[in-house]
């Protein structure tokens, strides 16, 4: 009698590795296909749509801020949490960056340090409320969202702070270090690559998935879940701070009333990209694709001169199609019942 427990794996049957990869990542294949189809549609309707000027400044550039926020919140959403404070958090970080860089005549690079430090601080505060005060993420970050909104208005005295005195500030987003790609877009893709490494190759990434998959089991395995949650929310905050810097560089100013609502755009991008709000599952590439789908849609509809009001309706419909389509696919695959 054999002492082993019989078990076969699905890998043995499938054989072809490439097909197996396609099958495993089928959700992303559909998302990319969706992006390509939407892009082709608008290009067909209005050739100006696929001009480099429109692609770089109309589409990619307008993805930078929500894209960075979406990449950051992907970590939080994979833990099964949510961060509603990333929108007004961006506002507050932007105001703080302007306050110190403009007010104290600090060098350009310090803007990144200040923005990302305050972003991480706000995130850590969220994480601490969730981990130690045991507040639900929705409540904790809702509170932070309101507080950040208020603080931004107080610190700025309700007026925009311009970066006119800081030489080259706009070039952070609008300059071209490589070819004709705007720097803001380089920052987004660079940050996405770093985020991919953190999520897939580091300890904090592994615990992000573990906590979202089964937080209690992770804790019982001896992982200090509270500590990691704070770090994960702080990590999300780093991207918020970076988004704030890019936002001010795009506008040449920090606006105290700009940012509210960005959190929902970022969450929408993450969801369209196939990350589950239930936690345990998600990808950075999906989030980037999701953010691009949103930007392509908005830009394309604007070029077709569809009214702004109707653009919102279309985005709403796309979210439903994306998530429902994913559910249908997974039900067919037997992942859910």
């Amino acid at each position: 009698m054999s002492t082993t427990v019989k078990a076969t794996t699905s890998e043995e049957v499938s054989g072809n590795k490439f097909m197996a990869l396609i099958r495993r990542e089928i959700g992303q294949v559909f998302a990319i296909a969706g992006l390509v189809i939407i892009f082709a549609f608008f290009s067909f309707m209005k050739p100006v749509f696929y001009s480099w000027a429109n692609v770089s400044n109309g589409i990619l550039m307008s993805t930078t801020v929500t894209g960075l926020l979406a990449v950051g919140i992907t970590f939080v959403i994979i833990t099964g949490g949510i961060d509603l404070s990333i929108g007004t958090g961006t506002t507050l970080c932007a105001i703080l960056v302007a306050h110190y860089v403009v007010g104290w005549h600090l060098p350009l690079w310090s803007g990144f340090v200040i923005g990302m430090s305050f972003g991480a601080l706000i995130g850590a505060l969220n994480g601490a409320m969730i981990a130690f005060l045991k507040l639900p993420p929705f409540i904790a970050t809702l509170a932070t969202m309101k507080a950040a909104q208020g603080l931004a208005l107080i610190i700025s005295h309700l007026t925009p702070i311009r970066f006119d005195t800081v030489k080259g500030w706009e070039s952070i987003a609008q300059g071209n270090l490589i070819g004709s790609i705007p720097n803001g877009v380089l920052i987004l893709f660079g940050a996405a690559i770093v985020a991919w490494f953190i999520l897939n190759r580091t300890v904090i990434g592994r615990y992000t998935f573990a906590i979202g998959s089964n937080g209690e089991a992770t804790k019982l395995s001896g992982v200090k879940v509270e500590r990691w949650l704070i770090l994960i929310y702080a990590l999300c905050g780093l991207f918020v701070g970076l988004a704030a810097v890019v936002l001010t560089a795009r506008l040449g100013a920090a606006e105290p009333d700009l940012g509210l609502g960005y959190e929902l755009e970022a969450i929408a991008a993450v969801i369209i990209g196939g990350t589950s709000l239930l936690g345990g599952k998600g990808t950075i590439s999906g989030t980037i694709i999701g953010a691009l789908i949103m930007a392509v849609l908005t830009n394309g509809l604007r070029i077709l001169q569809v009214q702004q009001e109707w653009q919102y309706v279309v985005v709403g419909i796309v979210i439903v199609i994306a998530v429902f389509g994913d559910n249908v696919r997974r039900r067919r695959a037997g992942e859910i019942s």
Partner: peptide, 9 residues
Amino acid sequence: QELNLMPHL
């Protein structure tokens, strides 16, 4: 008693 595993890992 209840399985304590992370299904997504």
